[in-house]
């Protein structure tokens, strides 16, 4: 099927537009973050005395109300409405960006008459959309949730830090990795590309979100362990408990999907490459990432590994995923290499 050039141009335009919108939303998130309320030194000291430190021994109830006292119910600063408005705009921009971004993938798919994830540019783009959608789902769920773990403003503090890697990856995909719209080569002409790659995309996106939450968890828990440290930065983040939960839940939900992505890849490999597993570099890295995430889940169940250590494991998992995406596609030659540039 020939490529529809007009549609493909629209897709490129939508792509560029979505990057611009995402950058704007990132700046808005950071704007809210910068203007947001800070725990004053006095409150910080108080928090230290009340013992956020000893939070581990407390029941969830006490902890969440503590957290409120520390960062939630500070008398409104004069700047507050502006910050909140920025935050609201940031979320709207994210939604808008995601719609345009989706449009870009859709038109790419229509232009080529196939799924829009046949090369690394499209794949990177789709992962970013998955990460943004994961973020929006978390945001809206948390806002509706009866057992709220963070105020909307705190939660949005995470937004900028998610949009940062997303815009970066989109920028790289759109420049260095860009590939013209083209039909698929024979090895990719299979319905498994819909199943295997879609599952890989969704998991990569969600795990990107989880990794960012874990990084912020480490920063926030430094602040909570010593409220005099990183006061401005740490106090604006969601509580470490909330961050930990978000990271954990995203990973728990997506881990079976990630497993499925690998198994689907193996089923496809059996049809395409003549064996279901052959330690191709991409397979090996997928295996390593799987092991690391399995270790993360086990670590959460083992006393002494909860908290900071398990957050590090989650970050390690994200590092392996990113390594798998860039290094294995671009540097190592393997069977997956055709998916590259």
């Amino acid at each position: 099927m020939p490529v529809n050039q007009t549609l493909s141009n629209y897709s490129d335009m939508a792509y560029a537009t979505s990057v611009v919108i995402y950058i704007a939303s990132m700046l808005l998130y950071f704007g809210e973050f910068a203007l947001g309320r800070v725990a004053t030194a006095a409150q910080a000291r108080e928090a230290a005395l009340v013992g956020v430190k000893s939070g581990a021994q407390k029941s969830g109830a006490e902890k969440s109300s503590d957290a409120k006292d520390v960062v939630g119910h500070v008398p409104a600063a004069p700047k507050r409405p502006l910050a909140e408005r920025l935050g609201g705009m940031a979320v709207s921009m994210t939604v808008l960006g995601a719609l345009v971004h989706f449009g870009s993938l859709l038109t790419r798919g229509l232009a080529t008459g196939r799924v829009p994830w046949g090369n690394m540019y499209e794949f990177g783009s789709a992962i970013c959309l998955a990460a943004v959608v994961a973020w929006l789902i978390v945001l809206f769920r948390q806002l509706r949730n009866a057992r709220r773990e963070a105020t909307p403003a705190q939660l949005r503090g995470l937004g900028g830090f998610l949009m940062l890697p997303v815009t970066l990856l989109l920028f790289l995909s759109g420049t260095v990795l860009y590939a013209d719209a083209a039909p698929l080569q024979p090895a990719l002409q299979s319905y498994w590309i819909v199943i295997h790659v879609a599952a890989a995309i969704v998991s990569s996106g969600a795990l990107l979100f989880a990794g960012v939450a874990s990084i912020l968890y480490l920063l926030r828990s430094r602040y909570e362990n010593n409220p005099l440290k990183m006061v401005k930065f740490g106090s604006r983040l969601p509580t470490s408990q909330a961050l930990d939960r978000m990271a954990y839940r995203a990973t728990v939900i997506i881990f079976p999907v990630w497993t499925f992505a690998i198994v689907a890849g193996a089923i496809w490999a059996e049809a395409a490459w003549g064996r279901f597993w052959g330690w191709d570099p991409k397979e090996t890295c997928a295996f390593i990432a799987w092991i690391v995430y399995a270790a993360y889940l086990h670590a959460r169940a083992t006393a002494g590994w909860r908290g900071v250590r398990s957050a590090w494991i989650n970050i390690l998992g994200l590092a392996v995923m990113i390594f798998n995406l860039f290094f294995v596609n671009l540097v190592v030659t393997g069977l997956h290499s055709y998916a590259g540039l």
Binding site: P281, T284, C285, F287, V332
Partner: peptide, 9 residues
Amino acid sequence: LALAALPGA
């Protein structure tokens, strides 16, 4: 195991 698989990639 993860570490040992790494040189394989």
